[in-house]
Amino acid sequence: MEKRAEQAERRALEMLENARRLASAVAATPDAVFAPFWFAVPEARPLMGEDGSLSPVAELAPGTWYLAVGKRGDALVAQAADGMRGFLLDAAGIQRDDADSAAAAAKSGFEPFWFAVPVSRPLMGEDGSMKAVANLTPGTWYLAIERRGDALVAQAADRKRGLLLDTTGIQRGDEEVAKSNVRETLRAAELLASAVAASPETDFEPFWFAVPVPRPLMSEDGSMTAVAELAPGTWYLAVGKRDDALVAQTADRVRGLLLDTTGIQRG
């Protein structure tokens, strides 16, 4: 059986490889001559968000048909029956069904994009009830995933979706948001993989510190999972150092890796 440290290092390296694949997909130019097709996966595989973060938006399950609507580098842009889209980074062993290519192509005409609204605007329900399901606010990026007449089907960060009826003056972010996100994701993945693989600093002297802005405390298991969020104005205990990361502990004994230590205040 693998030791815990070896498992964490293996998981961190797998996560780093996924981050690199995701970065490559976001940076790649869409395949202009791609022919959409239906496919099924041989085993459960994550569908990664087009926003460049390492948080899966869905899990593709065996025995279900999904629509490949595009290709970015080695990744497929896949769509589920509920309209959820994302990157399938590992397409090895998928089962293709090209029998309904024409129908698939008809579904694939819209290219999703990021946008922001100039003023607060309601996101209306898709059921035709004219009931707002959310309120879009300026300064926040939303994902347009489909067009319905003059309206956009928009999705917020919490995956709530609906119809934006008034699209006048919206600011399109296109791929710049995703590219910025994926750069941050890849950098964090590299830092985490390096920290997990590094030996603990043997002569480390513990100290108290505070963060200048909210920062995630990442799991030591290499999974790129936040175990807590460190907040400004609170003191935390640095109990170790792994490469450039601090091993930090909260007041309730939750501990993890603080990857970004810039600007911390030592007590």
Rank of each mutant, 00 (worst) to 15 (best):
M1G: 15
E6K: 03
Q7N: 13
Q7R: 15
A8N: 09
E9I: 07
R11A: 13
A19V: 08
A23G: 10
A23P: 07
S24H: 11
A25Y: 06
A25G: 03
A27N: 12
A28C: 09
A28F: 06
P30I: 04
F34W: 05
F37T: 04
F37H: 03
P42H: 07
A44K: 15
D51P: 05
D51I: 00
S53L: 14
S55L: 12
A58M: 01
E59A: 14
A61Q: 15
G63D: 07
W65N: 13
A68C: 07
G70Y: 04
A78S: 02
A81W: 02
D82P: 06
I94H: 02
R96T: 14
D97N: 15
D100Q: 14
D100K: 14
S101V: 15
A105Y: 04
G109I: 06
F110Y: 09
E111F: 11
F113C: 04
W114K: 03
F115S: 03
A116I: 00
R121K: 11
G128K: 08
S129G: 12
S129R: 14
K131E: 15
K131R: 15
V133K: 12
P138Y: 09
G139H: 02
W141D: 12
Y142I: 05
A144P: 05
A144K: 01
Q155F: 05
A156M: 14
D158F: 11
T168Y: 00
V177H: 12
V177D: 08
T185E: 03
L186H: 02
A193P: 03
A193N: 02
S194W: 01
E201A: 15
T202Q: 14
F204H: 05
P212H: 00
P214G: 08
P216D: 06
P216M: 04
S219N: 09
S219K: 08
A226L: 08
V227S: 05
L230D: 05
A231D: 11
P232G: 10
P232H: 10
A238L: 04
A238K: 05
G240Q: 02
A245D: 09
A245C: 06
A245L: 06
L246P: 05
A248E: 07
Q249D: 04
V254A: 11
V254G: 01
L258E: 00
T261H: 09
G267K: 14
